[in-house]
């Protein structure tokens, strides 16, 4: 599942920030281009290690279009020293980049099925490449639905794209927020509550789920209740990824290294581990 990587996967390559788009108060999307050569191909769901020189390195999923070979797009939330420095980058800033690493959303295997793409919070960013792929090949899929939840209306990512997707006839988009005031005319509630709001055949559905782990667990319970089989559910795990190539062990999750075997994993493979506090 791994895409080709830079010759030395441990050596950060210099990439320049070409453009910055503010998504929310603390989330930005960065367009990155390499100082030398061209971006390598990536698969939806893969991530890079981004290095703020002198500060540190963090894993960030690719959030752009995998068919766009001109740049990498990363969507970053400023939550710590490293992500804060990366999110504060301006056009021209040079960052270190390793990868792409990790497994991918099984978009090719999902062809012929209904597909539910379910995101919570910043989890829409790692799923956006899968959405681009599915929409570019919509004739290969059955019904397509994106279910998305966030903390509040101000924290919703990719406003303009959500509006465009909602206007398409070949997909359904349902959005909910945990809290809102009456100026918000959309849904208020949790993501699992969206599952029964869209049409799909549970026996022939592939679900891709990304968000906080608690949200993933409740969402998978909702998918199970709706009749979607565990082996048709794929989730993206978040763990403390450091080396990104399965050497250091920081992201070990039972028998898997999330950086190398994930971050996208089939739910039936990890179901027993997800509920275990000791792992």
């Amino acid at each position: 599942m791994n895409a080709s990587v830079a010759p030395d996967p441990m050596l950060p390559q210099p990439w320049r920030v070409q453009a910055v788009r503010r998504e929310t108060a603390d989330v930005v999307s960065l367009d990155l281009v390499p100082l030398a050569g061209a971006p390598m191909p990536f698969k939806p769901g893969q991530f890079n290690m981004l290095y703020a020189f002198g500060i540190g390195e963090v894993p960030v999923s690719l959030s752009g279009d995998p068919a766009d070979a001109s740049r990498f797009v990363h969507t970053v939330r400023a939550v710590g020293a490293v992500s804060g420095a990366i999110a504060a980058a301006t056009p021209g800033t040079v960052l270190g980049l390793r990868g792409p690493f990790g497994s991918a959303w099984p978009v090719a295997a999902a062809a012929g099925h209904d597909i539910l793409i379910i995101a919570g919070g910043l989890g829409l960013a790692p799923l956006r490449p899968a959405i681009y792929h599915v929409l570019a090949n919509s004739e290969r899929f059955g019904r397509i639905a994106v279910l998305y939840g966030s903390r509040g209306p101000a924290e919703l990512l990719f406003h303009d794209e959500l509006a465009r997707w909602r206007g398409r006839l070949d997909m359904e988009v349902e959005i909910t927020v945990d809290h809102a005031d009456p100026s918000w005319h959309g849904r208020v509630g949790v993501v699992p509550g969206l599952i029964d709001k869209v049409a799909f055949d549970p026996k022939n559905t592939v679900a891709l789920v990304c968000g906080p782990e608690v949200m993933i667990r409740f969402t998978v319970a909702g998918l199970r209740a709706a009749g979607v089989a565990d082996d048709h559910v794929h989730v993206s795990m978040e763990r403390n990824m450091k080396c990104a190539v399965g050497l250091c062990g920081h992201c070990q999750f039972g028998p898997d290294f999330v950086c190398k075997d994930g971050a996208v994993l089939a739910y039936d493979r990890i179901a027993a581990r997800l509920a275990a506090r000791e792992i």
């Binding site: 939550v79 919570g120 919070g121 910043l122 939840g149 966030s150 903390r151 924290e155 945990d178 809290h179 509630g189 949790v190 699992p192 509550g193 968000g211 906080p212 608690v214 949200m215 409740f218």
Partner: peptide, 17 residues
């Protein structure tokens, strides 16, 4: 179901880690 959903909302799962 609504009680469980309300509990999930209380968790503020999208808040800052």
């Amino acid at each position: 179901g609504r009680m469980q959903a309300a509990r999930q909302q209380l968790l503020d799962v999208y808040g800052h880690p």
